[in-house]
Design a protein around this nucleic acid. Structure first.
Lengths: 251, 251
DNA sequence: AAACATTTAATTGTCTGACAAATCGAACCG
DNA sequence: CGGTTCGATTTGTCAGACAATTAAATGTTT
């Protein structure tokens, strides 16, 4: 039985068509791996030209809702939304949201550490050897002397992703991917001294140790310390910038 | 100075062009409200036809990265990603992720309550009169007798969104929008008896009371109870279904 | 001079028709 | 039986055209 679509009557045709097909997917009238009619058939059904149909399909492809294949048995197929793809969308959306709305560092940081804290009890319960090893490896990297600030930040992100993944809940990992990754551009604006790096490494070690021991509350405390320290670092940076660009330092 | 774009050399042209422009936006080479060259100019720059450019632009429009306007001073403009739009994308992505990957109820539920728990301390600190009023209003609605299961679920979602918003952190609200809303389809499969509704209303009340009193730990406990009860409800439902479709009930 | 109406130019939205590229299946041949 | 060729189908891209929309320039009237 052919799938039927409901069209709105406002806005561009390609947007209407895309919305109609998307609704059909979300509502389950089009199921995973099902093939949509060919572009020519869709054009006929919707009574539009093929380019218009194509623009609609590209909209859906941009959201990973469909994939297209050329050739005789090709066409557009409903995509199973994979965790990986969802991660990616999550990260770009979060990054843009932060960068384009001038979200202040404290707010973003607060959100991130609040969310990570939610993972700690589960991570303490389920952390596997692989997750612990990943965390240790990143800690080791962070302690290396000649590391650039950028690499340090990247390793920081990797550490926290390992922490999140240690909770063993893919839905949780998905939701936190954006929160953790989107902070990287903001963190990259900080210059880490040898002393501040050491402090961070110590706190990371404390977190890993606590998780390995299965002590959630100790890990939460270390995480809270880390959050406070990160906010303080950013605050210092802002203060230094303000004095440099404004009046002379008070001290 | 004209913005320059880097092209990959694999995949479809429209995807390459979309990626190039998206990168330019993410990297800040194209700033908010800046106008892109006209489709004809883009076609010239990228040495492709206008339909190809248009497909690329539609991909970006689908992600709310640009908006287009017709007319003399029209064109494609870089969009400021608004929280609202980000919420929407987050919700549809999360919903699809859950529905298409057969995520079991327990996993999704665990993730949701873990994330909500992260909001509680902040909500206890900052909850405003409006948030509390919204929560009370939803509790009141949930206690009404003739309410359909669907409306009950919708009200449940509204209650939890109010809880999340009470934390007063828009970034946190954004991240949790998906987690809370995407549960609704799963919750809708549950039939709520009068007794289970009463239990949920009681727990919601306990949460609201605790937040009003600023007692985070009490609210966290009530939330944990609610999580456990929800999981138990779903488990009961599964068990009943299994007996109905399989062997006779044991009791 | 000011207010209003008209024209004009620029730009996106859509259509038509065509061809290229990829891909599968079937017919064909060794 | 295995490999090859050919044809059919479908998406990807192109070229050119016209419609719809919008803002600015222009002209007209008061």
């Amino acid at each position: 039985m052919p799938v039927t679509y409901d069209l709105n009557t406002e806005g561009e045709l390609s947007a209407q068509i895309a919305a109609a097909i998307r609704d059909a997917i979300v509502a389950g009238r089009l199921i995973v791996d099902e093939r949509l009619p060919s572009e020519a058939e869709l054009a006929e059904q919707f009574e539009v030209s093929r380019p218009t149909v194509r623009e609609a399909l590209k909209r859906l492809a941009a959201q990973n809702l469909i994939r297209t294949q050329r050739g005789a048995t090709g066409g557009a197929f409903v995509n199973r939304l994979r965790y990986e793809d969802a991660y990616g969308q999550q990260i770009t959306t979060s990054t843009l949201l932060l960068s384009m709305n001038e979200v202040d560092f404290d707010t973003a940081c607060e959100a991130r550490y609040a969310l990570e804290r939610a993972c700690v009890p589960l991570a303490a319960l389920r952390r596997g050897a692989d997750h612990l090893a990943a965390m240790r490896a990143e800690i080791h990297r962070q302690a290396q002397p000649g590391l650039s600030d950028e690499s340090f930040c990247a390793s920081d992100v990797a550490f926290h992703r390992a922490l999140v993944d240690a909770a063993g809940n893919p839905v949780l990992s998905y939701h936190l991917a954006g929160a953790v990754e989107a902070m990287q551009p903001l963190m990259n604006m900080i210059t880490f001294t040898a002393r501040s790096r050491q402090r961070i490494v110590d706190l990371h070690t404390a977190i890993a140790d606590a998780l390995e021991a299965g002590e959630a509350s100790r890990a939460e405390m270390a995480l809270a310390d880390l959050a406070a320290y990160t906010v303080a670092l950013a605050r210092d940076l802002r203060a230094r910038r303000a004095t440099r660009h404004g009046a002379a330092p008070a001290g």
